[in-house]
Every structure is written in C-alpha cells, then in structure tokens.
C-alpha cells in the first residue's frame, strides 16, 4: 500500500478526488494491475472505500441485532416442538465455529502476505479462506437437512421461524463472502495479488471477519446457551 500519490497526499486529496492521472490512465486497462494500485486516502488518512466498508459493517450491527433479539424474545414461546434443546448439536457446531475462526486467521494471513507483496502466499491463504468458508457452509447444509428431517421447518413454530432466518441470513452473508473471495482469487490469476491488490483484499477481509464475529455471537447465544433450556 505504498502507492499513494506523492507525500503531501492529503492536501491534494479530498478535493482532487484522489484519483490522479494514474487512475485516469488505468481506465481502459481493466485487466491491468493499474487501477487497483491507487488509493484514495482522504482527510482522515483512510481510504474512502475502507471508511465506507466500516460504516457498512457498523450498520450491519443493527441488522443482525434485530434478528438476534427476535430469536431471544421468542425463545420458549413456541407452541409446539421441536425445541432447540432437542435439536441443536453443540459438538458439531463447535467444530464448524472452529472452521470459521480458522478461516479468519487464513484471511488475515492472506492480507498480510499481499501487503508484503508475497503473491504466492497471498493466493494460497485466500484460497484456504474460501475453502474453509465452504466448509462452514457444508456444516450448515448438513445441519439444515438434519433439522428438516426432524420436523423443524420455517413455519412449524417460532423456533423454526427465528432460527432459520437468523442463521440463514448469516449463511447468506457467508455465501456472498465466499463468492467475493473466489472472485478475487480468480482475478488474482490474471492481475496478481500483491501490494496493488492489498486494499481490495483487505476490504473483503473486513467483511469476512465481521461475518465471523457475528457467528461468534450466534454460537454463544443460540447454541451454547441452549443447554440452559
């Protein structure tokens, strides 16, 4: 991430709309490494896109919070079974939680490698992240199949309603994340995955870690605490 224009960076910055000639010229080379190289560091010293991503994640707290509070508020209010205690599989979910946590570790190593321009490492860790993400999703697919066999559907009771929407929307976020990571991986085959792409990778990483963090909360509130009945 050494590509900021000049050293007086931010005096030029905001107003100049960041992109300097480098960016203007990079257009038309959509395949070239060029246009990821620039960074739009503004008055705060932070790239526009990174600032935007953090704002989005802050907003997502309000999003997931609402589903979590619905789950908790409706806990024990189901008029019929199956109940969480009957179904939720803590050992298995601990394993899938572990997988997701390790994907976060892989992600951070990928970003670090890209920032240090170790392209092969970056690619390796990026792929590992995506695969671990897919692993998490497989756990979820298995869990859902099992639950549906056991009679838990979206409409059977409040537990089904709140459980599937909360974990399903989280799963959707993971799916989007995996798609994003794979897209970055495929593109990296053409344009590389070094310093020039580090910011793009970092943004995907922030999203990915956030999804992980949300799962940490869900794992505790939905799964672990279900032992309390």
């Amino acid at each position: 991430m050494a590509e900021h224009h000049g050293t007086g960076g931010h005096a030029l910055q905001g107003p100049a709309r960041g992109p300097g000639a480098a960016q203007a010229l990079a257009v038309g080379h959509p395949q070239g490494a060029g246009h990821h190289a620039h960074s739009e560091v503004g008055v705060t010293g932070i790239d526009n896109r990174k600032l935007g991503m953090w704002l989005f994640l802050a907003s997502e707290c309000m999003f997931f919070g609402a589903f979590i509070v619905a789950y908790i508020a409706y806990q024990g209010k189901s008029l019929s079974g199956p109940t969480p205690e009957e179904l939720l599989n803590i050992p298995l979910t601990s394993l899938s939680t572990f997988v997701l946590l390790m994907s976060s570790l892989a992600m951070v190593l990928a970003v670090q490698a890209a920032q240090q321009d170790r392209q092969a490492d970056a690619r390796k860790w990026l792929l590992a992240t995506a695969l671990l993400g897919l692993g998490f999703l497989s756990f979820q697919a298995y869990e859902y199949t099992h639950f549906i066999h056991a009679g838990l559907t979206l409409s059977v009771n409040l537990f089904g309603t709140t459980f599937y929407t909360l974990t399903g929307l989280h799963g959707l976020h993971v799916t989007i994340g995996v798609g994003w990571l794979l897209a970055l991986f495929l593109r990296s085959l053409k344009v590389g995955l070094g310093r020039a792409q580090a910011l793009s990778l970092e943004l995907a990483g922030l999203y990915w870690h956030f999804v992980d963090v949300v799962w940490i909360v869900i794992f505790t509130l939905v799964y672990l605490m279900s032992v309390l009945g």
Binding site: T44, W54, A58, E60, M62, G65, A66, I68, V69, G205
Partner: peptide, 30 residues
C-alpha cells in the same frame, strides 16, 4: 477478532469509533 484481525487496534480511531457507535446503538436499542 475485531482488534487484531480487523486491525481496529492499530488503525485510526475513527474506524473503531464508527464500529463502536453501531455496536453500542445496537446493544442499547435491542
């Protein structure tokens, strides 16, 4: 995860500020 993997511990405070705002509002509200 937020502090190390997401770099909040090392980045500029404004990012942590944004995230904390969302988190605190969500916690308080919900």
């Amino acid at each position: 995860v937020a502090g190390f993997f997401m770099h909040l511990k090392f980045d500029r405070w404004v990012l942590a500020g944004f995230f904390a705002a969302g988190l605190i509002l969500a916690l308080g509200t919900y």
